[in-house]
Computed example of a mutant assay.
Amino acid sequence: MILEHVAIWTNQLERLRAFYETYFGATSNAKYVNPSTGLETYFLTFSSGARLELMQRADIPENKNDTIAQYRGIIHLAFAVASPAEVDKIADRFKEAGLTILRGPRITGDGYYEFETLDIDNNRLEVMAKYGGDV
């Protein structure tokens, strides 16, 4: 069994699509629009085959994402890269773009090298690689 996709509601559909294309190499399908419900959606596909569905509809309320507090339920999306050096490269790219780094890059207690960040809707993200001793 595989996890087919994860969906995110947004009120910045085009900007969020561009964010994941720019910083995570996602490829988008053509926008789907349902005129009767007002739903607009993209499926973004990553090199691993994983997919992220971005959805927008005017009647969906704002989320309560908090950049400090954490709550039960889905808390973050994690993106794996090939090496700790690549984690550093992506973290540097985020810093140069003025994007938020919440924590890291750092070595975790369970054998990963990662940094935590936010997308433009304040959804928590991790960028990680297996840690083999060299950073």
Rank of each mutant, 00 (worst) to 15 (best):
M1T: 07
I2V: 14
I2P: 15
H5Q: 09
H5K: 06
H5T: 05
V6H: 07
A7I: 11
I8S: 03
N11F: 06
R17W: 00
R17K: 02
A18C: 03
A18G: 09
F24I: 08
G25L: 12
A30K: 11
A30Y: 12
K31V: 13
Y32G: 15
Y32D: 15
V33H: 14
V33C: 12
V33S: 13
G38E: 11
E40W: 08
Y42W: 02
F43Y: 06
F43C: 02
F46H: 01
F46N: 00
S47T: 15
A50S: 08
A50W: 06
R51C: 04
E53R: 00
Q56N: 00
Q56Y: 00
Q56R: 00
R57G: 05
N63P: 15
K64N: 15
N65D: 12
D66N: 13
I68T: 15
A69F: 08
A69D: 05
R72W: 02
G73P: 03
G73A: 06
I74D: 03
I74S: 06
I74F: 07
H76R: 00
L77Y: 03
A78Q: 04
A78I: 03
A80N: 15
A80Y: 14
V81R: 06
A82H: 11
A82L: 12
A82E: 14
A85K: 11
A85I: 11
A85Y: 11
V87R: 01
V87E: 00
K89D: 14
I90V: 07
I90D: 10
A91E: 01
D92V: 06
R93D: 10
E96N: 07
A97I: 04
A97E: 01
T100C: 12
R103L: 05
R103K: 08
G104D: 06
G104C: 09
R106C: 15
R106P: 15
I107K: 04
T108E: 10
D110H: 13
G111Q: 03
Y113S: 12
E116T: 08
L118G: 00
I120P: 14
I120D: 09
D121M: 07
N122I: 08
N123R: 09
R124M: 01
L125Q: 00
E126W: 14
E126N: 09
V127Y: 10
A129H: 04
D134H: 11
D134F: 11
D134T: 10
V135T: 07
V135Q: 05
V135F: 01
